[in-house]
Write a protein that binds this DNA or RNA. Structure first.
Length: 485
RNA sequence: GGCCCCAUCGUCUAGUGGCCUAGGACGCCGCCCUCUCACGGCGGAAACACGGGUUCGACUCCCGUUGGGGCUGCCA
């Protein structure tokens, strides 16, 4: 049987981490089995759905590289299909109109709660006489359509992750299929659509595990075979509560904004609830596709750990080619107003070298802008703590610096070896600790006490800029005698 | 409350009755490398929720307890 799977988000919220993981698992499963990945937007609750949310969800999926083969289909545009399905059920007697108003229901629910018993729809309208129903209908009494849950049944299905599940039909209530305004509900739509779209495997969050018994009953009512079900354990926040807006940046797109690489995100998400069974943790997307399958999906919920995600991102940042990072860094620099057009042309090599130097020291893309500022502009300040640490202006330091400046100005091949040799010689000759001199020069070059290897920085910046920056530091020292010594 | 599900280091996980004095990863701590930081390398602290069974033998199987999660909407 052809593998056809679907991701069916509801546009009542953004694509959060849990949704992204569900989408990823669906996508991986489809790719692994050479199947079709259908995207379906479940927007039957139109008050709470919005096109902005839809766009955000699509954007999130695109960012993660989860291309869909069919859709997006919108349930709001398939209403006739659901109406027709309802008529079918009605004709077969497996659905009935219910005239209880929300208020009535609420008060009865309240009453039963106060008496200490568990509430479930009391089926008051389940067995109204045909005449009574007709009369109420003629009076245009508002009503919903409910599913007639069979009695004395054990609903069974086998979940690919959770195994065999059995539920007594008594614990399933006569749920609503059609709202009083005629719009269908989720339970009806999923089943109708999964049948219509010939979905072979339903892979979704475990929050739907209990709902599945309703769906199984519906499939049966339509005389349709069950798809395979696979429920994914939920992703929880650090407080072990289900992930929600409350937990900060849970929108997937928010992570893009924070400088995450989509491949790192996908890699991290793949390992939440699934394991390849080996000690390896870093996988390319194509490796994930070939390794992934449902049989190694866990049953227990997982806590989302931002620290590990960030670590994984740093692994990708450090190992990926500078060319891959270039467009991302460019975007960030443009936003920061630091982008120089020449870096797309003659200055390309310089730009890529800078990216290479910085990438093992970054955990997020945004670090390129802050941590790497001195590579992209002359407009940087001397970090206060770096000044305090490396600029105790002793006569030796100052004369060593000016000697270095002079030596660098005349250095013929301005290479890594030469710049380092010269500096060390001067430090020795002036009885200045090499580390101190290096620290001071690093401050001159970057304004910071932390940076890539000094001589890498120097030869990347080039002779001219190196000298300019040494001059700037010398001026600073000359005009700042107030520094504590 | 009722129904369903889950339970290995703080977190993600490996483990499928003896290979476990429980392995890996993140985070944390120490050391090495070293011009700082990062990378990398080495080492350390850190877990089978509890109680009963079953078995020659349980992290692994069964039952119970506890804890956690989900559903219980004219949300999805």
């Amino acid at each position: 049987m052809a593998v056809r799977i679907r991701f069916a988000p509801s546009p009542t919220g953004y694509l959060h981490i849990g949704g992204a993981r569900t989408a990823l698992f669906n996508w991986l499963y489809a790719r692994h089995h050479g199947g079709i990945f259908v995207l379906r937007i479940e927007d039957t609750d139109l008050e709470r759905s919005s096109s902005e949310m839809v766009e955000g969800i699509l954007e999130g999926l695109r960012w993660l590289g989860l291309a869909w083969d069919e859709g997006p289909f919108f349930q709001s545009q398939r209403l006739p299909l659901y109406q027709q399905a309802c008529e079918q059920l009605r004709a077969r007697g497996t659905a009935y109109p219910c005239f209880c108003s929300p208020q009535e229901l609420e008060s009865r629910k309240q009453a039963s709660r106060e008496s200490g018993s568990a509430w479930q729809y009391d089926r008051r309208c389940r067995d109204l006489s045909p005449a009574a129903v007709e009369e109420k209908l003629r009076q245009a009494q508002p009503h919903v359509l409910r599913f007639r849950v069979p009695e004395g049944r054990t609903v069974k299905f086998s979940d690919r992750v959770f195994g065999p599940i059995e539920v007594a039909s008594e614990s399933v209530e006569d749920f609503v299929l059609l709202r009083s305004d005629g719009r269908p509900t989720y339970h009806l739509c999923v089943v109708v659509d999964d049948v219509d779209m010939k979905i072979s495997d339903v892979i979704r969050g475990a929050d739907h595990l209990s709902n599945t018994s309703k769906h199984v009953l519906l499939f049966e009512a339509f005389d349709q075979p069950l798809p395979n079900f696979a429920h994914l354990p939920l992703i929880l926040g650090t407080d072990k509560k289900r992930l929600s807006k409350r937990h900060g940046a849970t929108s997937t797109l928010e992570y893009r904004k924070q400088g995450l690489l989509p491949e790192a995100m996908a890699n991290y998400l793949a390992l939440l609830g699934w394991s390849p069974g080996t000690d390896r943790e870093l996988f390319s997307v194509s490796e994930l596709v070939s390794l992934f399958d449902l049989d190694r999906v866990n049953r227990s919920n997982a806590v989302f750990d931002p620290a590990k995600l960030e670590w994984m991102n740093s692994q990708y940042l450090g190992s990926v080619a500078a060319e891959r990072l270039a467009p991302e860094v460019k975007r960030l620099l443009q936003e920061a107003g630091l982008w120089n057009e020449s870096w797309d042309a003659g200055g390309r090599d310089y730009f890529l070298t800078a990216v290479d130097l910085l990438k093992t020291r970054t955990r997020r893309l945004s670090d390129f802008v802050e941590f790497g500022r001195a590579f992209f502009t002359d407009d940087f300040n001397y970090q206060q703590e770096a000044v305090e640490k490396y600029l105790r202006p002793s006569p030796q330091l100052i004369s060593a610096l000016s000697e270095l400046r002079a030596a660098y100005a005349g250095l013929k091949p301005f290479t890594l070896e030469n710049t380092e040799r010269v500096l060390r010689e001067i430090a020795d000759a002036r009885a200045v600790k090499t580390g101190s001199l290096i620290g001071a020069v690093r401050l001159a070059m970057t304004g910071k006490s932390v940076a890539p290897g000094l001589f890498d920085v120097i030869i990347t910046l080039g002779q001219e800029k190196t000298i300019q920056r040494l001059d700037r530091l010398l001026n600073f020292l000359a005009s700042a005698p107030a520094l504590k010594s």
